[in-house]
């Protein structure tokens, strides 16, 4: 199965000195729901925009469903942060625009979904709440029946029930068609339920990428009295010392034995994510989801 998203040494530079993304290598298999995690400024939006054909590559290459994003525009469903649409247009007109500008647009499904969500087609976009606008934007991409969804923090304005409903729609889209979803979010708990593939970005670089279950099996969280790290030869991702105890996320190595007084466990999803998001190996978790 060809990769839904493939990047080779991808980089983007804004202006003269500011790199939004560097050395990005990715091979996201099709049919996955991918969590794209990282603090603001980490390159999430840059990556999303490049995959959607909005930004050119400064160096390297990016391929979506086997071709450049500009050649695959009809197979990409993109919703930018805050679900921007045309403020003075009516919902019905926006759906019509979707129909006119997309060859495979399912207009019936779109209007059914809008009706089911209780949004009136005659409402103007700027009269809708943030959550309703997000739903209209999501309806637009769902009706397009893309092979790759690119959703930049799509659920930020949705209440829990709406999030549930939206996830349901996404899963329905994926399991039926094998579409891939890439979505960036700060909400770790919902990512774990919904996603089975992970990309962690920080400072414009990919820190971790892979199937979530595999990644959790490839790492351990080990805790013990201060000092245990210095002996033992562990491949440390990050560590934190507090109250005489050092806790570290390490790459699993079955050749190493656990010394006395040490406890180890498989990392939880957020231990894994936070472990790769902290800077230089020392945990500063409060920065992570800034």
């Amino acid at each position: 199965m060809r990769a839904a998203l493939r990047c080779r040494d991808l980089a983007h530079r804004y202006g003269r000195d500011v790199w939004g993304l560097r050395d990005c290598d990715l091979d996201v298999p099709a049919g996955r729901v991918v969590a794209l995690v990282g603090p603001n400024g980490s390159g999430k939006t840059t990556l999303m925009n490049m995959a959607a054909g909005l930004l050119p590559a400064t160096t390297g290459s990016i391929e979506v469903v086997g071709d450049t994003p500009q050649a695959r525009l009809d197979r990409i469903g993109f919703v930018a942060q805050d679900a921007p649409l045309w403020p003075r247009m009516r919902v019905g007109d926006v759906l019509e625009i979707g129909r006119c500008m997309n060859p495979r647009f399912d207009a019936q499904m779109a209007s059914d979904r809008i009706e089911r969500l209780g949004i009136r087609p005659r409402s103007r976009i700027d009269a809708l709440s943030g959550g309703e606008r997000a739903q209209v934007a999501l309806t637009l991409v769902l009706a397009k029946k893309p092979e790759l969804f690119l959703l930049d923090e799509p659920m930020a304005n949705l209440d829990p029930l709406a999030r549930r409903e939206f996830l349901g729609s996404m899963f329905e889209a994926c399991s039926g068609t094998g579409a891939t979803v890439l979505y960036s979010s700060h909400a770790v708990a919902e990512l774990e339920r919904a996603c089975d593939y992970l990309i962690v970005l920080r400072g414009g670089h990919v820190r971790l990428v892979g199937d979530i279950d595999d990644l959790r099996m490839q790492h351990r969280v080990i805790r013990g009295p201060v000092g245990w790290l210095d002996r033992g030869g562990w491949d440390v991702v990050s560590e934190q010392t507090m109250a005489g105890q050092t806790t570290a996320l390490v790459r699993r190595d079955d050749t190493l034995t656990l010394g006395p007084g040490l406890q180890d466990a498989s990392p939880t999803f957020d231990e894994l994510v936070i472990g790769y998001l902290v800077d230089g190996g020392t945990a500063r978790p409060q920065e992570v989801f800034a």
Partner: peptide, 11 residues
Amino acid sequence: QRSHLAAWTQS
């Protein structure tokens, strides 16, 4: 109004 992000990512 940032709607170019929608306008330029239809097909």
